[in-house]
Nucleic acid binder design. Structure first.
Lengths: 97, 97
DNA sequence: TTATTTCTTCGATGACCGTCGAAATAGGGG
DNA sequence: CCCCTATTTCGACGGTCATCGAAGAAATAA
C-alpha cells in the first residue's frame, strides 16, 4: 500500500497510467463516488486484472489505497496531483468521453 | 500527412502519445520553437525512430505535419486540442520536469 | 480452527511498443 | 536524368503490457 512521495511522481508514469481505458474508467468512478474498492466499481474485468490496474495507478502516484478489514478502498490523490501537476487531473476528468 | 478530425481524437490515444519521454520532449520542443522538423529538434534517436514518434503524435491528434519541399515541419494542434480537451495540453506543458 | 470474503501474487499467453538498419520514396538542384 | 537531402516504410529484435486462472495471504465470522 506504500505510495510514492508526490515529488517523486513522474509525468510520463502518470500519463501512462491514465492512458489505459480501464484505468481511466476507474479514475472517473473514483472521482464520482469517492473512496471505493476495486470490486465495488462494477467493472467486468477479473479481480486479478483490476488489482493489476490499481497497482499501476498506485505506483504512478494517481491513487492511494488503505486497508480496512478484508477490503482495500482506494481514493484519488487529488490534492497531491494538483500540487505536482496543476490542472492535469481536472483536465482529464473534465474531458468529454 | 492526413490528421484525424479533432472530434475523433480520443483521450486515451492522446495520453498514450504523451506518455513516452521522447514524444513528450518533442512536444515540449515544438511548444518552445514552434513549427519544426524532426531533424531540427536535435534529438539523439535515429530518423526512423523519430519518424515513428511523429506518426504516433500525428495519428493521436497531437501534431499536424505539412509538406515543404523535401522536409516535413510539424506543429502542435494547440487550438484543436484546447477545444477538445480544455486545459490538458497546457497542464502537460506547464508541468515541472 | 475452519470457512468466507477480498484482494494480491504468480505464471503464462498473446498483443503491442520503442528501437534501429536497410531499403524505398519524393522533392530540388544541377 | 542523376544525385543529394529529408523523411517514411519495412522487417526484425527485445522488452513491456493487459488479461486471466490458480494459488496465496490476511482479516473477519462462526
Amino acid at each position: 500500500m506504500a505510495v510514492p512521495a508526490i515529488d517523486d511522481v513522474e509525468l510520463p508514469a502518470v500519463l501512462h497510467a491514465l492512458a489505459d481505458p480501464v484505468r481511466l474508467e476507474i479514475v472517473r468512478l473514483l472521482d464520482q463516488r469517492g473512496e471505493s474498492t476495486c470490486s465495488a466499481l462494477g467493472l467486468s474485468q477479473s479481480p486479478a486484472t483490476l488489482s493489476h490496474h490499481m497497482r499501476v495507478l498506485r505506483e504512478s502516484g494517481v491513487v492511494a489505497t488503505r486497508l480496512e478489514g478484508t477490503s482495500r478502498p482506494s481514493r484519488l490523490r487529488r490534492d497531491d496531483l494538483q500540487r505536482r501537476f496543476p490542472g492535469l487531473l481536472d483536465a482529464v476528468l473534465r474531458s468529454r468521453r
